[in-house]
Design a protein around this nucleic acid. Structure first.
Length: 429
RNA sequence: GUGCCCAUAGUGUAGCGGCAACACAAGAGUUUGUGGAACUCUUAUCACGGGUUCGAAUCCCGUUGGGCACCCCA
């Protein structure tokens, strides 16, 4: 034979960096988490809301903050053909608030309790439990400043995570004050660090100008040393913030939530004020699997009236990785299914109708009708661990019956087609 | 975005300048219509593009993707 012509092969495409496929074998975990979330949301009285992936760029610049890394360095933003500046959402809170203001959702329910779930996008280097496209589950309570809602957010989140069997959750909590006391505290910090600046690490030197609060969560040994002497938020809160924080801690204790106050906990998004918190689990010790806080000023920064609110974002990929690391199996497994095998063309054709009948009666049926030999089909049945296999050949077509085989015992029985649904249901119990 | 490590069959690995190999998985089959065992066969232009060389999976450069840390964050 002549030498084969070398074909020009089309390019084989790969995924975009940091944007993973969620493959069928992963789906037991995903469905497990998502369904648990839905059950919890239902119990805690949250409505589902979905907002688009694309938003006007300005929403995030104004809402999340132009100087935050998330907006400044990590956003997928571009100009559309029509000339609009848009961004793929890096987080879910600002879009929810936008929707709240745009559709006056306070009239639908006040406060409005909503949850969302979907992909978020941040252009940073992927690493453990961190992707460029990742999924967040959020709970938000908009339109009320009462401390009970801060605690309800935490309770819903913990309920979610506990329902997934994640153990030894730690809740780190802090308050970062409000408009009144935060500037004051910020100045105190600046004062404290002013003459110690030369001892700070390079990054902290920058943070000093950009966001002094962030000096507090630096892990450089020198900076850690300095931080021990630094003024603490709690000593500089206004009366209102102080009261609210105390109320929240009381409520938390009343509800048997174990927590760790962390005076150095500050968040990276500008919209937070007062309560901030993060949740950790030992199997993923260095990464928060959920975090949130109060954001009373977000609405105003995106052009609305004051809508005091509180919320949380739960990292789905992180939750799943924590479950895997802790060797927690997914709660939801694929249902057992009946296997249907046909022998010969005539039986194969007739079997489509029977399979459809079973399925429309709520019986999940698997098949590999494309395979010719019965042997190969039986192998498929074995592979999916079908409890029973229905065998249908030429002979059965004439008899109007189907062989029902119990895969464990190997016992077989002929069942008339009209009785099949009933018989299969009986055996599946 | 910066830095370091990595890329051979579906998966896990060997080969380290001279014939791409092993295990498992998957698919087809081992006399007619019966799975789990055994056996046979099949499955890779060594991620992609370029360079060095008589000769490249192997050495070099670039790209893409994966992993980890930093920054930051869910």
């Amino acid at each position: 034979m002549a030498k084969q012509q070398k074909k020009v092969k089309a390019k084989l495409f790969q995924n975009i960096r940091g944007m993973a496929d969620i493959l069928p074998k992963e789906q037991d975990w995903w469905r497990s988490v998502l369904r648990t979330g839905e059950t919890v949301a239902e119990l805690h009285d949250f409505y589902f809301i979905e907002t688009p992936i694309l938003e006007e760029l300005g929403l995030f610049e104004s809402g999340v903050g132009q100087d935050t890394d998330v907006v400044d360095k990590q956003m997928y933003s571009f100009k559309t053909k029509g000339g609009e500046n848009v961004a793929m959402r890096p987080e879910g809170t600002a879009p929810v608030m936008r929707s709240y203001l745009q559709h006056h959702l306070g009239y639908f329910s006040s406060p409005l309790k909503v949850y969302y779930c979907g992909p978020m996008f941040r252009q940073e280097r992927p690493q453990q439990a961190r992707y460029r496209q990742f999924h967040q589950w959020g709970f938000e309570i908009l339109g009320d400043s009462d401390s009970v809602y801060d605690v309800q957010i935490m309770l819903a989140t913990l309920d979610f995570l506990k329902s997934l069997k994640l153990k030894d959750l730690t809740l780190k909590i802090n308050t970062i004050g409000c408009r009144v006391c935060r500037p004051n505290y910020r100045n105190k910090l600046k004062e404290y660090y002013r003459y110690k600046k030369k001892n700070l690490c390079v990054d902290c030197d920058k943070r000093y100008e950009k966001n002094v609060l962030r000096l507090l969560d630096c892990r450089e040994p020198e900076c850690e040393k300095l931080k021990k002497e630094a003024p603490i938020v709690l000593d500089h809160l206004c009366a209102a913030c102080n009261n609210q924080f105390r109320t929240i801690l009381e409520l938390i204790e009343d509800n048997d939530i174990s927590y760790t106050p962390d005076p150095y906990l500050v968040r990276g998004l500008d919209y937070y004020n007062r309560t901030v918190f993060e949740i950790f689990t030992p199997s993923l010790p260095n990464l928060a699997i959920a975090s949130g806080g109060r954001y009373d000023y977000l609405s105003e920064s995106i052009g609305g009236r004051m809508v005091p609110s509180v919320g949380v974002a739960i990292g789905i990929e992180r939750v799943i990785e924590a479950m895997k690391a802790a060797q927690i199996p997914p709660k939801i497994k694929r249902k057992e299914r009946v296997f249907f095998a046909a022998i010969g063309d005539q039986a194969k054709k007739a079997s489509v109708k029977i399979i459809n009948m079973l399925r429309s009666n709520g019986i999940p049926v698997s098949e590999t009708l494309g395979k010719k030999s019965l042997r190969a089909q039986m192998k498929s049945a074995d592979k999916i661990k079908a409890p029973i296999t229905l065998i249908f050949g030429q002979k059965e077509v004439f008899e109007g019956a189907v062989i029902v085989r119990d895969m464990k015992s190997g016992a077989q029985e002929n069942v008339i087609t009209s009785k099949l649904v009933e018989e299969v249901k009986k055996r599946l119990k």
